[in-house]
């Protein structure tokens, strides 16, 4: 195994079953992500991009295949074990298209939520959360609730939240999908810069070719196969 590979997927397959109908969305997908690099995945809507991200994040099981998170090897057919779930909190950060901020929590509480869940929340995490919010340009919104923020601001907060635990890999699922072009560009620029500064590898699912081109590797998911561009 190459030591510089931070995330590797081998022969990942996934088929959805609807009664007697079957839909194979992922067919023996292989993927390698070197440390500090970025990979974009494009593809038509419904082609299985989000499913692939979910499998990489061990939120969803595959029908076959193995996964490597750094040195940790996992069988994707079975459910994530508690230790893998706990490891995920520090290894991976996820940014979603729809932000998924908890509306009852303030911006700062949302950002520190992952540390709170992992039981490691302390003063240093709060300071880091403030730093990340500052980096994302929303430091003045720390005490606001998400409902008072614009879409772009919410996504910046979501990126800060994903980066709080200093993850090795950031999975971004169409992070600009709900934003206008200009805001999307700003957010993407912040995302790429933040990953670079934090040393996090990035897997970016996007429809936008320009954003895809900004990553080190580009690939397209078509008919269940991941093809490098």
């Amino acid at each position: 195994m190459n030591n510089s590979i931070i995330l590797q997927a081998n022969d990942i397959s996934k088929t959805f079953r609807f009664g007697k109908q079957e839909l194979a969305v992922l067919k023996s997908i292989n993927l390698s992500l070197p440390m500090g690099s970025s990979l974009s995945i494009r593809g038509e809507s419904g082609c299985g991009k989000t499913t692939l991200l979910n499998i990489l994040a061990r939120i969803e099981n595959a029908d076959a295949g193995t996964l490597l998170w750094g040195q940790r090897s996992m069988d994707c057919e079975r459910k994530a074990r508690p230790d893998e779930v706990a490891h995920r909190a520090n290894f991976l950060g996820v940014v979603y298209q729809a932000y998924y901020l908890v509306p009852e929590l303030s911006v700062l509480e949302n950002v520190t939520l992952s540390a709170r869940i992992s039981g490691s929340l302390d003063r240093s995490f709060v300071e880091r959360a403030h730093d990340l919010l500052k980096k994302m340009g929303v430091a003045d919104k720390a005490d606001q609730i998400p409902g008072k923020l614009s879409g772009g601001e919410r996504q910046r907060v979501a990126i800060a939240r994903a980066l709080l635990n200093q993850p090795k890999v950031l999975l971004a699922d169409e992070p600009t999908g709900n934003l206008d072009e200009r805001t999307g560009e700003d957010v993407m620029s912040l995302l790429l810069n933040a990953c670079s500064e934090e040393g996090a590898s990035l897997i970016l699912v996007t429809h936008n070719q320009a954003f895809a081109r900004a990553t080190n590797q580009q690939s397209v998911l078509t008919e269940g196969k991941l093809n490098e561009v």
Partner: peptide, 23 residues
Amino acid sequence: MKIPWPLFLAWKQLFPSRKIVSF
């Protein structure tokens, strides 16, 4: 004292930040 996160979230859902109480 660290509050267990389920308790924290349960409390916050009842008494959200910047709001006295949820309806």
